[in-house]
């Protein structure tokens, strides 16, 4: 399977959850997305299904930025 790109992830996030940030970059933090816990669960579930990976709570708790999220999705 080809490597997950940042653009794919960003596009997928935009398409699924209401994000109030103009531009998503690898430096955008998860907190910047300003999603409540239900929407964060929704985003994680969507990304896991789209890219066919499973991220544990421990892995998620170490992710601060979208760049790190892409790394985590890629590393599996």
């Amino acid at each position: 399977m080809p490597a997950v790109t940042f653009e794919q992830v960003a596009e997928h996030i935009r398409a699924t959850v209401p994000v109030r940030v103009a531009e998503l970059t690898p430096e955008t933090t998860i907190r910047d997305l300003a999603l409540d816990s239900m929407l964060l669960v929704e985003m994680v579930v969507d990304l896991q299904e789209e890219f066919d990976v499973m991220l544990s709570q421990a892995e998620l708790s170490r992710i601060n930025t979208l760049g790190e999220l892409v790394e985590a999705l890629r590393s599996q």
Partner: peptide, 12 residues
Amino acid sequence: PPPTPFQPEAQY
């Protein structure tokens, strides 16, 4: 309550 996704462990 369980941790929420992306919640830093120190905060939880």
